Simulated scan of single mutants.
Amino acid sequence: MNRFLTFFSAATLTASLGLASAGGAGPVGSGLISMPSPYSVSATLDRVAAAAAALDFAVAARINHAQAAQKVGLELRPTEVLLVGNPRGGTALMQCAQTVAIDLPVKFLAYQDAAGQVWLTYTDPAALMSRYNARGCNEAFAKAGGALKTIAMNALK
């Protein structure tokens, strides 16, 4: 539990200080890619959904964490997660390492930091390949990485 709290605190501190750079990674070792968005949290994920649909990804779910917090009397800056998936690409990843399914569908996080900057964040598929020891699957994970980068870049135009 302490390792979780230590990681969570480091991740929260990094995000709140805006240490993730354009096209850069999130907290060290996290495998996250974070990019600043010129749009609101909600608009950012609307644009991600449209960019994902253009690549034949379907929206599986959308979670508004700030709204959920408000329902229980707590405050949270705008924070939303969009889950998108493409069975052709996702299946290829799971055929390489079935346990990667725990990280699918793919999640895009949009949140507003303490300074008011909105960030779009997702997990780099290369980190998943490493995490799940998916050997001999470079092409499938590279293709997934390219698709997610395209979605993110198109959404932030």
Rank of each mutant, 00 (worst) to 15 (best):
R3W: 09
S9K: 14
T12G: 08
T12F: 13
L13G: 12
L13Q: 14
T14F: 15
A15S: 14
S16Q: 15
S16L: 13
G18L: 04
L19R: 11
L19W: 11
A20E: 02
G24I: 13
P27R: 07
V28F: 11
V28D: 12
S30L: 01
G31N: 03
S34Y: 01
M35S: 15
P38S: 11
P38C: 00
A43H: 01
D46A: 04
A53R: 07
A53F: 01
A54S: 10
L55S: 08
L55W: 03
D56K: 10
F57K: 02
A58S: 13
A61S: 14
R62T: 10
I63H: 10
I63Y: 09
K71F: 05
V72E: 09
L76S: 07
R77S: 15
P78L: 03
V81I: 15
N86G: 08
G90Q: 05
V100E: 06
V100T: 14
A101P: 08
L104Q: 02
L104Y: 03
L104T: 04
P105V: 08
K107M: 04
F108P: 02
F108H: 06
A114V: 12
A115E: 07
W119N: 08
L120F: 03
Y122I: 02
Y122F: 14
D124R: 11
P125T: 11
A126G: 14
A127G: 11
L128I: 11
C137N: 10
A140K: 09
A142D: 14
G145M: 06
T150D: 12
A152H: 03
